[in-house]
Simulated assay, not measured.
Amino acid sequence: MSSASAAAELLAVANDPKHSESGGGHGAKGVDFSRIWAVFRMMELEKANEPDFLILFESVQDVAELDSVTAPTRAKVYQVKKKDSGTWTWSILTGTVEPKAPSSKAAKAKAALPKFPKAPDFKKVPESVLGKLHLSLNAFTALPVEGIFLSNQGCDFPLESGGSTATTMPCSLADLAAGHVQLLTDAFASLSPGGPPPDLTRVKLQKVAIHPDNLNAPAIEAALDLLNERSPGHAGQAKAFVESLVMKISPLTRRTDTCLSFAELVKERGFSRGSFIAALAALEAVPDRNALFNDWMNQLQTEGVDFMTISSVRVAATRAQRDRLTGGTDVSREIDDFSDAWIAANPPTSKLRPYVEAALTELKAQFIAHRDNDLMARFVMRAITKCVDPN
């Protein structure tokens, strides 16, 4: 298989509307889930030191992952679905009726195939989650491809080895109990009459720990780990890094026009490792907030603020940073907003102590339940942020 034929095949499949999932299928929150997971996946690939990667959006299913931006040799195709609660049912994922488990061990030993009162109905299979995934995989003949159904919620299907998918994920469809495997084999075969037997080892079920009400947290944690390893001085900007990546890929998820070449497809709907590294390099160019914070603390101490207060403010700043990385609270955001407004009306002066103490007086009057050290730490952090990014 040449890289040219692989790229041409992927372009052809991407231009076929049968194999894309434009809009994510779950509204704005579902689209956000897909974008955040894609950023999380980029962090995984980069931490694994993959030499190259390309993430394509709304091209083949929800997300397609290639091992190269110029000469792909393999691909993964993802159906990425958010579910607020509960588990995924067999009927939703497959479009068929789930086989009933044998009532006893003896019956199980005799039951090689599921029992139905009538022949299984496969009419809903083409529009089912796994049916669409299988059809997309079948569209490829040159490029090796596997499909993954990925969600924040799992499913509870029996495995041939015992146990269930609820506690054993990821796993392939070939790992399911014999009756379930046979039913899926027949169901997928009905989608391509006369074609080769379906390969259930190519389709996997995977669960990811992303909560619908706190989508960013796992990606921020992954970014924090990566930045601590690659750029420790900018680890405090993990949240901003994740948000910037989400903003960069958001337009890519809304483009559905037919592309005339693989290069155009990459440009219109792709985010490569090169783009990821460029975003990381852009972060390096941003002044180090931690260094600026230390400068402010040192100057305040030089101007007469006692050592114990400085130490307490440093500890409070660490707590505030952890809080900010997890999204913060309503009150912490109110303190930030109040500080921003005060800073806008009172630009920093060369003497920091009277400036910070004047702000602290206003903050204490507004937020009487908070300790001085916490308020001072949050104010200084906001003042530094405004110095780094006035907008």
Score class of each variant (00 low, 15 high):
residue 150 L to I: 15
residue 151 S to K: 02
residue 127 E to G: 11
residue 161 S to P: 01
residue 153 Q to S: 08
residue 334 E to I: 09
residue 55 I to F: 05
residue 34 S to E: 03
residue 69 V to M: 08
residue 193 P to D: 03
residue 17 P to V: 12
residue 282 A to Y: 01
residue 152 N to S: 05
residue 65 E to C: 07
residue 130 L to Q: 00
residue 100 K to D: 12
residue 227 L to M: 06
residue 35 R to I: 00
residue 56 L to M: 12
residue 130 L to W: 02
residue 289 R to V: 11
residue 132 K to L: 00
residue 300 L to W: 05
residue 279 A to L: 12
residue 30 G to L: 02
residue 318 T to R: 09
residue 118 K to R: 02
residue 354 P to S: 11
residue 19 H to T: 11
residue 119 A to V: 00
residue 202 R to F: 02
residue 220 I to C: 03
residue 275 S to K: 15
residue 109 A to W: 08
residue 295 D to C: 14
residue 83 K to E: 05
residue 336 D to F: 00
residue 346 N to H: 06
residue 326 T to P: 12
residue 139 A to P: 00
residue 24 G to F: 05
residue 21 E to S: 13
residue 10 L to G: 02
residue 337 D to M: 06
residue 169 M to K: 15
residue 176 L to H: 12
residue 308 M to Q: 13
residue 209 A to H: 12
residue 82 K to V: 14
residue 377 A to R: 08
residue 328 G to C: 09
residue 156 D to I: 05
residue 263 A to K: 15
residue 19 H to I: 07
residue 226 L to W: 12
residue 269 R to I: 00
residue 350 S to H: 11
residue 151 S to L: 05
residue 32 D to F: 12
residue 168 T to F: 11
residue 303 E to M: 01
residue 129 V to G: 03
residue 5 S to T: 13
residue 376 M to Y: 09
residue 317 A to W: 01
residue 333 R to F: 01
residue 307 F to G: 15
residue 271 F to Q: 01
residue 69 V to N: 13
residue 309 T to C: 15
residue 348 P to E: 12
residue 47 K to Y: 14
residue 131 G to R: 00
residue 190 S to G: 08
residue 312 S to I: 02
residue 130 L to G: 03
residue 373 N to C: 09
residue 175 D to L: 10
residue 389 D to Q: 12
residue 277 I to Q: 03
residue 296 W to I: 14
residue 259 C to Q: 15
residue 112 A to R: 14
residue 26 H to D: 13
residue 68 S to N: 06
residue 243 E to L: 04
residue 51 P to L: 13
residue 321 Q to M: 04
residue 138 N to A: 13
residue 185 T to I: 05
residue 213 D to L: 07
residue 86 G to S: 00
residue 270 G to Q: 09
residue 83 K to M: 02
residue 135 L to V: 01
residue 379 F to G: 10
residue 98 E to K: 07
residue 44 E to G: 07
residue 165 T to I: 03
residue 138 N to H: 08
residue 350 S to N: 14
residue 125 V to W: 08
residue 209 A to Q: 06
residue 190 S to W: 10
residue 107 A to R: 14
residue 239 K to A: 10
residue 373 N to Q: 14
residue 351 K to H: 03
residue 243 E to H: 12
residue 91 S to F: 14
residue 186 D to Y: 11
residue 30 G to P: 06
residue 138 N to V: 10
residue 315 V to A: 10
residue 318 T to H: 15
residue 97 V to Y: 04
residue 18 K to L: 14
residue 126 P to R: 06
residue 7 A to R: 07
residue 85 S to R: 05
residue 253 T to G: 04
residue 160 E to M: 01
residue 341 A to R: 08
residue 291 A to W: 01
residue 72 P to V: 10
residue 189 A to M: 07
residue 261 S to H: 09
residue 368 I to V: 02
residue 41 R to Y: 07
residue 101 A to C: 15
residue 222 A to H: 10
residue 386 K to F: 11
residue 374 D to R: 12
residue 165 T to Y: 04
residue 305 V to Y: 02
residue 154 G to P: 01
residue 386 K to D: 03
residue 144 P to C: 05
residue 253 T to S: 10
residue 231 S to C: 03
residue 198 P to S: 00
residue 9 E to G: 06
residue 142 A to Q: 15
residue 179 G to P: 02
